[in-house]
Design a protein around this nucleic acid. Structure first.
Lengths: 139, 139
DNA sequence: TTAGATGCAAAACTTTTGCAGTCAC
DNA sequence: GTGACTGCAAAAGTTTTGCATCTAA
């Protein structure tokens, strides 16, 4: 990880432990929208003593700092997304893969039903089968 | 529940046990997008012996028959929606309430990234604070 | 009569919590 | 040195599973 990034992370008030750096590095090079377990498994070889508590704690901090988003594609576990530019998602019902989708051209207006709400964002999630699962005839 | 509905449910091949009828009735008059526990708690008084297994089993069947949808607004538990006309959702980050939103006027085109996928549907979820939580200054 | 549903309990899976020890700053 | 982080283990919350019993059709 380069100096600039390290400075940036420190400027956010993050205490940069080896575990956190490893998580940040893993997320940087990753568009797979990993679950907590994915992160844990990926880092286990380098940090055999690392615990789930550390993963969850770190992810909570990163979400608070705005570096990571939780996405609600699966209804029974969290998936994390470190690509924070506005975009949307596709979720494969068969293999649970998530694919990034660029922003939608036509702007979506605030619906009438929500005029008294305080809106912070919206997500669009497409569902179906990814190319691989489609080809394999999954459903 | 009227005759017509009963016939309709039977025509789907549903075995209509008292518990199932109660769940169907509960869902019919309900736009709160209940969790499994909400359903369980609502029916417990009438069916003190009912179990979670029955709730989950029934919901699985109803989802398969297309009478109910699972919605992914929370990432740690399922929420069910028995209103099957096309629509979208708002999720209050504070009180977890879900509000129905009508379909969006401008059609959303299939994104280029997904041209090789088999798409079955898309969901739009708005996030923020509902009017009550906004007024109370929640966050 | 019987395929399929129920109820119960145990297990599985994911996330959260408390706390003692440790470490980045 | 100190506040924040880590690791561990236990607990909490949700969903799934196996199986004996029961029941709607």
């Amino acid at each position: 990880m380069n100096e600039e990034k390290l400075k940036f992370y420190k400027s956010l008030g993050l205490k940069l432990t080896p575990q956190r750096l490893a998580i940040l590095e893993y997320l940087e090079n990753n568009r797979s929208h990993p679950s907590a377990e994915d992160i844990y498994n990926a880092l286990k070889p380098r940090f055999p003593s690392m615990s789930f508590a550390t993963v969850y704690n770190t992810m909570e901090v990163l979400v608070k700092k705005g570096l990571v988003k939780e996405i609600s594609v699966e209804s029974t576990r969290k998936r994390f997304d470190a690509f924070t530019h506005p975009h949307h998602h596709f979720f494969c019902k068969s293999c649970k893969k998530v694919i990034d989708v660029g922003t939608i051209k036509n702007n979506i207006k605030t619906p009438e039903e929500l005029k008294d709400c305080e809106l912070t964002e919206y997500q669009i999630i497409f569902f179906g089968l990814c190319p691989e699962c489609k080809r394999k005839g999954k459903q």
